[in-house]
């Protein structure tokens, strides 16, 4: 015991809460599972395959990137799994898996690892990948299948396509809009993970209870969408349940790395996300605006975080 070298010296504090990045990511994965299960039910095995392809390719790309860049391996933090799942959630169920692999490469290699990996990217990898795929493969990325199409035997997939509820409104295809109940349980056209509102809300609740996310961003985002839809004469509940609002507000806009870290910042960020979403839906040629609005706001995060930065502790004399 007299050998000095045996004692470890390190700066305080000497204990930790035990929280770890991998634990947080595992919670996010758990929160995504209900929606993943719903996607499997609604859109069948192709949805499941797509999720597996995205998760698998994201993890592989992360693994390879770290090796190529000679950095410490990070697949253990499970963030690549989360990115893969979220990317799959943003794709149409019958998308060719090759496109999904391309999307994974964009998300992990270009958006995440080229900027230094977890915590350093300025845009949400899954959203950026979705936007890139949309611009590159607009037809494939907007071919939506009807819920339970896989149970209808004998007919070709073409016969089973439909439009998203927002698309129906925008393009006036004359198709009947799904009922609010259908929208709540997810039996409608859309990206495979965005349709089941019930499952997404359940996941969101789990994240809030586990204190993984604060409810500020989802509440402000969803509230703003509802309010402005109503102002522009749309049905607010329909607006919230349609498109990717719930998926975006609960899982994408709350991404730690690409959303503000302060309470104040979160409020501003989420309200603007909601506002831009409604503006795009109402005035732009696109039916849906969640991805674009979150991506745009991601870029503004450093700016938003400057707010309140110079607020120092009060100096000087008495303040009783």
């Amino acid at each position: 015991m007299n050998n000095k070298e045996l004692l470890l010296v390190s700066p305080s504090p000497h204990i930790s809460s035990g929280a770890a990045t991998s634990g947080i990511m595992l919670d996010v994965i758990i929160a995504l599972l209900p929606a993943a299960a719903a996607a499997g039910l609604i859109f069948g095995y192709q949805a499941l395959i797509l999720m597996l392809v995205c998760v698998g390719s994201c993890v592989v790309f992360e693994f390879i990137s770290r090796i190529v860049m000679k950095r410490k391996q990070t697949i253990g933090d499970l963030s690549a799994v989360v990115t893969g799942l979220l990317l799959a959630f943003n794709l149409p169920a019958t998308l060719n898996p090759v496109y999904a692999v391309i999307g994974s490469a964009v998300a992990i290699i270009v958006v995440k690892q080229m900027f230094g990996g977890i915590g350093h990217n300025f845009a949400n990898p899954a959203i950026t990948a979705r936007v890139v795929l949309m611009l590159s493969f607009p037809v494939a990325m907007t071919t939506w299948v009807k819920p339970f199409f896989y149970q209808v035997s004998g007919s070709s997939i073409d016969a089973q396509t439909t439009a998203t509820p927002l698309g129906i409104i925008k393009e006036g295809t004359g198709e009947a809009l799904p009922s609010l109940w259908d929208m709540f349980i997810g039996t409608r056209g859309g990206s495979l993970g965005e349709t089941c509102a019930a499952a997404l809300l359940l996941g969101g609740l789990y994240l809030v209870i586990r204190r993984v996310i604060s409810p500020i961003i989802p509440l402000c985002f969803i509230g703003t969408v509802a309010l402005f839809s109503w102002i522009f004469g749309q049905e607010p509940i329909f607006s919230v349940l349609s498109g990717g609002v719930l998926l975006g507000a609960i899982f994408m806009a709350t991404d730690y790395t690409t959303s503000p870290i302060t309470r104040q910042g979160k409020v501003i960020f989420a309200i603007l996300c909601g506002l831009i979403t409604v503006l795009i839906r109402t005035f732009a040629a696109l039916p849906e605006g969640v991805s674009f609005s979150i991506l745009f706001m991601n870029i503004l995060v450093p700016l938003i975080e400057r707010i309140g930065r110079g607020k120092k502790q009060k100096k000087g004399e008495k303040k009783a």
Binding site: K4, L6, V9, S12, H14
Partner: peptide
């Protein structure tokens, strides 16, 4: 057992000591 780290003070703000 064998002590590997010795602190003067608490685990949050205490100082690790290099010598018993």
């Amino acid at each position: 057992g064998e002590p590997k780290k010795i602190l003067l003070g608490g685990p949050m703000m205490g100082t690790a000591i290099y010598d018993v």
